[in-house]
Amino acid sequence: MNQADVSKLVSKLKIKVNPRLRKFRNAEGPLGRLKKLRKTVTALVKHERIELNYPRADEARMYAERLISEAIRYGDCHKTTMELADFWLEEKQLVHKLFKVLVPRFQDYNVSYTHMYRAPRPYPGPMHKKAVLELRGNPYPSLLPDMISNRNLIHNVLLDEAKKEYRAQKYAEIAAKIESAENQFIGKADTSSNTSNEEIATSEKSRVKDAEGSISESSEINKVQDDKK
């Protein structure tokens, strides 16, 4: 059977999509639901970080992600995408923001374009779960505590020391390699005077190069720390 490859028709989102959509029951029916979500998507694009009830945030996030990914995929000269943007963004100046600000910002991202956090609910107060929905790369300070830049925190102290120890171990290995190469060189020079000194020198150089290569490859710990960021 000739079945269409779905990923070519619809852009694949980088967030988990709910298998069942929430109804958000209201007098206007499904259109009313979309109108509600439209308000939220517009607010998200406008303010870049909003706090709202969890179900609405979760639902609107999917539409916002879809909108941005379509905009990146087809650009602003695509009629359908422009209609989509026209529908989802109630304030029309935000259509410009979508194509001129958000598309350049997100086009190289290989993660989701939005970020959602669970937020505390006021106590005492209504029992609804709250969430914070934000666009990545927004200009506000991060909501999560910064655990990286302060190197005096206990995990950073431990990681830094581990890194130092790893470095020291690698340098010791390199030193041992060079030493063994030197020993070989002296040994060879003593036994066989036929071998030209130049050849041995080049072989030694290559050994040293190998060793240097190994230390540059082996900066795993560095990488891990960067990942953490």
Binding site: M147, L153, I154, H155, L158, L159, E161, A162, E165, I221, V224, Q225, D227, K228
Partner: peptide, 20 residues
């Protein structure tokens, strides 16, 4: 080796600490 509850570390980084 141990970390306080308020400090969350990914398991790769933590395994480096464990190995040390």
């Amino acid at each position: 080796v141990s970390l306080p509850y308020s400090i969350v570390l990914n398991h790769v980084a933590y395994s480096i600490l464990e190995n040390r």
